[in-house]
Design a protein around this nucleic acid. Structure first.
Length: 465
RNA sequence: GGCGACGUGGCCAAGCGGUCAAGGCAAGGGUCUGCAAAACCCUGAUCGGCGGUUCAAAUCCGCCCGUCGCCUCCA
């Protein structure tokens, strides 16, 4: 069975057929860097990280480009408020975002282009669009002529006539048609500006992605991704510009869009102000837990971010981690060992089938929980050695495809470990002497410090958290 | 008003016409344990509502109710 993905352009699930066999050219829209990124941005980055990891698991070489929009109105406004240089402000948030990417265990993109470093290419493309009749200059601005693009609206399913009727479009005397959008904006005094045939100015939002695509991936790409709030107008306009410029369609074969993260019943966004920054989240929670939350639902559906769903994700993670505990015996053959081997193979097939179905991560997790149960059952049956190790390796590999680290908090307790061991040893002596009240008070005391003790047939183990 | 997504047990969620409607968390009962913890076993939903198509529907169609996104900057 082949990998199937939902394509916003066709509104259907389709088999993935790449331009070049075994290679995927993927462009994902990154953030506009005018403020600290929030967990909604993280969700999008995680979704496409999982997609990228899975494509690589399936043997594709992935060229992954993620851009930074480092010049736009909001950056300029923000910089002015703070009396800071806009370019420097953007730079600061880019650095912060890249730290977040690392902290969230997101694989680095192949290239991270920035709008401000590709201005010349944009000017060239805009000039060409004007020459071909797809755009027109107006008083220092340049606009794209939507009427010239015969299939404008095909991504978002809108018709020019209907959008007109919606009447939510501002009337601008400069524009020939209300839906025409800016390719180039003339600079007002004090704004960052680059020279152009139309006077000093800066690029419009949509043109930068078109040009960075052309520059880093070529005239046609396989996957173009982003949040579903970008479908219109951003991606619609990108298609209009790029296909008008190259004369080739489709610009991107598959358009993938993730659903929005919901906080308190509505979309988390900078504009609404109902946000939790990645920094704040990571101060209290693990990167794995946020990823787990994302994995628990379909990437295209809205995802509810709440204390309850986060706690749920964290406990589910514990379930996965538990299966990585050491074996309790050394049975390498027999019915239990054979059953484990069979369950490993079954889990792998189920995992791949789920992921092949438009990245059904919730279904893939179900396959992993089956593997967890198989491992735990095998441990109870004293299976050990190679069969047990191989099952755990498989679990690590598949959770790795989802980008989970399954790191425990124990590293943080490293310094305290000898002291905890000492207490555990003392408690063991007390238990032998049937001094249970004292033994229990040690256990309770450690529990208050966040250390959990577990008495098993092989002795007592402890873990943080 | 237009376009799109969606509504499955307390929470999250799979399911895409046909064996018992996956799985995780939570809850209850058990096994194990000095007691716990962990692990394992067992227990619960007829699928927003109403019609229709079909031998057969959570799964297809229609209408209604509700939620979310986009239509303006936005992952």
């Amino acid at each position: 069975m082949a990998l199937q993905i939902y394509n916003t352009l066709t509104r259907r699930v389709e088999p993935l057929e790449t331009l070049i066999p075994n290679e995927v050219k993927m462009y994902v829209c990154g953030p506009t860097v005018y403020a600290s990124a929030h967990v909604g941005h993280a969700m999008s980055a995680i979704v496409f990280d999982v997609i990228r990891r899975y494509l690589e698991y399936r043997g594709y070489k992935v060229l992954h480009v993620m851009n930074f929009t480092d010049v736009d109105d909001k950056i300029i406004v923000r910089a002015r408020e703070r009396g800071e240089d806009p370019i420097a402000l953007a730079e600061r948030y880019i650095e912060e975002f890249q730290e977040h990417i690392q902290a969230l265990n997101i694989l680095p993109a192949t290239v991270y282009p920035r709008a401000t470093r590709e201005i010349e290419g944009m000017v060239t493309v805009i000039q060409d669009l004007i020459k071909e009749g797809y755009a027109y200059p107006a008083d220092g601005d340049v606009y794209f002529r939507v009427k010239q693009d015969h299939d404008y609206g095909k991504l978002s399913g809108r018709k020019l006539a209907e959008m007109h009727a919606g009447a939510r479009v501002e009337i601008d005397e400069q524009k020939e048609h209300p839906m025409d959008f800016a390719l180039w904006k003339a600079a007002k005094p004090g704004e960052p500006a680059w020279p152009s045939p139309w006077g000093p100015g800066r690029p419009g939002w949509h043109i930068e992605c078109s040009v960075m695509n052309l520059h880093h991936l070529g005239e046609q790409i396989d996957i173009h991704g982003g949040g579903n709030d970008l479908i219109f107008p951003h991606h619609e306009n990108e298609i209009a510009q790029t296909e008008s410029y190259t004369g080739r369609a489709p610009f991107a074969r598959y358009w993938l869009h993730n659903g929005m993260l919901q906080l308190g019943g509505e979309k988390m966004s900078k504009s609404l102000g109902n946000l939790v920054t990645i920094r704040d989240y990571l101060a209290d929670h693990s990167a794995d837990s946020l990823r787990m939350l994302v994995l628990s639902s379909q990437y295209r559906a809205p995802l509810n971010f709440s204390d309850e769903t986060i706690a749920n994700a964290e406990r589910s993670l514990e379930r996965l981690r538990g299966a990585l505990r050491p074996p309790a015996g050394n049975q390498q053959s027999g019915a239990a060992a054979d059953a484990l081997k069979a369950d490993v193979a079954r889990a792998r097939v189920a995992f791949v089938n789920a992921m092949d179905d438009d990245f059904n991560t919730a279904g893939a997790l179900a396959a992993l929980y089956d593997l967890v149960r198989a491992i735990n059952t095998a441990r109870d049956a004293e299976v050990g050695g190679a069969p047990f190790a191989e099952a755990q390796t498989e679990l690590r590999e598949l959770t790795g495809v989802l980008g989970l680290t399954l790191a425990t908090k124990e590293t943080k307790s490293q310094e305290a470990a000898p002291f905890i061991d000492l207490l555990v040893q003392t408690r063991l002596e007390l238990r032998k002497a049937k001094q249970y009240a004292l033994a229990d008070s040690i256990r309770a005391g450690l529990a208050d410090l966040g250390i959990t003790l577990e008495d098993g047939p092989q002795g007592t183990t402890w873990r943080a958290g």
